[in-house]
Design a binder for these strands. Sequence first.
DNA 1: CATTTGACTTTGA
DNA 2: TTCAAAGCCAAAT
Length: 108
Amino acid sequence: MDNFFHRVYKIVAKIPKGKVATYGQIASILGHPKGARTVGWAMQSAPSHLNLPCHRVVNRLGEMAPEHIFGDKRYQQALLEIEGVTFKEDGCIDMKKHQWIMDDEEFL
DNA sequence: CATTTGACTTTGA
DNA sequence: TTCAAAGCCAAAT
């Protein structure tokens, strides 16, 4: 059974405020180092009732999801800014400072 | 069952 | 960091 999706939701729900995680990072944690795309697919299929902070999940470049996900990139960017995430002039997140580093305790 | 598509990553230049 | 090409995974057609 595809616990993978459930895992993804679990991880995403654990992303601390003001931090962001990459698809590949989450996939790697779950044991699918090459399943970055699958994580994205999980997000696409992510039910709303889980209240997943998908705005904290970005690609490795710090770029946010396309417009057709939230409606506008600025929306996701605004949410992250509110949480304390800083953006560069390019509109990308400063991954070096805000990339979420998982603690051993988080690995449940 | 084969092909295409997609919220991606990695490697090399 | 950016450009181009290949790779990998799951769902849709």
